[in-house]
Design a protein around this nucleic acid. Structure first.
Lengths: 167, 167
DNA sequence: TTAAACTTTCAGTAATTATTGAAAGTTTAT
DNA sequence: ATAAACTTTCAATAATTACTGAAAGTTTAA
């Protein structure tokens, strides 16, 4: 496989994978492109490389900045804006984990909490609803806590976690 | 909040959450409904409760069975088929983790492996592509391993994992 | 073996989500 | 103050994904 083929394969795979980590295709592809680029890219560069419109590029770059994954950089002597992404994979994973926890997991925990605390009217179906949503609430809470613990070990969190779990 | 409201809130939240764990809305809602039901439900029951068509119900039940989350049960004296879901949340999480690893993570690992092993032609951009995709490959591999380790502790895997990581 | 009871399939359609492109907005240099 | 260089917004449209419903398929009982 040559450079160009590898690059395209990476970008397209990463793009279609977006859904797995909760972002859309274009957003994931922009991130992928920046991730393997040796220098910051302008909006023009991105549009051209990915063959997407200016509007699309602008909106998705904004979202990536909201996530804290991409940042603007000033290139001296240039008027237009340039963008880079976090290059360290572990830091990237930390950011994604934190954002997904904040955006998706916490709100669900809240709903499960509410639903599982309806008053027990003595019927079998109420009991079942309470029991099952309580269990789900606890599980979600535990998983969220666990994820945050891992990710907060900051340096080499993955290695540390793997080691601990191997014991 | 009364039973009916709680039930509807749970089903709709769980449904829209489907995307988070990689399945579609109807599929997640069917699972949610079975999850809080005190007894197995027939296709009619599901169609009626969720107000979805027969075809939709049939297809999504099939998928849930493919995932190993839902099973057919025979109710004596009844001709039609009835369905239940795994009721234990930890077991449910184990199944979901295993399936997502198999369906989504492993294929990505394979692509990253291929892309990161193109030959180094000495150019800066090739070096960067190789370096970054190697890092991503390693991270993905580690996370997948970690997840499988946790989940394979079978009994009380979550508690055990939390304890280990707290040390 | 037939027909009623039930399930599956899938072409057509609906709903949702992503993308475009051009107009409006902003910034910077002169 | 003006205009060139650039970015953002958003209504219109395209692409994708999910859902329906009826016909075809299957199983069971008599």
């Amino acid at each position: 496989m040559e450079y160009l083929e590898a690059k395209e394969k990476f970008i397209s795979t990463w793009g279609s994978l977006g859904s797995l980590w909760g972002i859309n295709k274009a957003m994931a592809q922009i991130q992928a492109l920046l991730f393997i680029s040796t220098k910051p890219l302008s909006m023009e560069d991105i549009m051209e490389e990915l063959k997407i419109s200016r509007g699309n590029t602008s909106m998705n770059l904004r979202q990536l900045m909201d996530w804290g994954i991409v940042t603007k950089v000033l290139v001296s002597g240039e008027r237009k804006e340039f963008f880079t992404t976090e290059k360290d994979v572990q830091e990237l994973a930390r950011i994604v984990a934190k954002e997904r926890s904040r955006r998706e997991i916490r709100p669900v925990i809240k709903v499960l909490e509410d639903v599982s605390s309806i008053k027990d009217d003595g019927t079998e179906k109420s009991k079942e609803l309470i029991k099952q949503t309580k269990a789900l609430h606890q599980l979600t809470l535990d998983l969220d806590t666990l994820m945050n613990k891992m990710v907060n070990q900051k340096q080499n969190w993955l290695t540390k976690s793997v080691l601990k779990l191997m014991k």
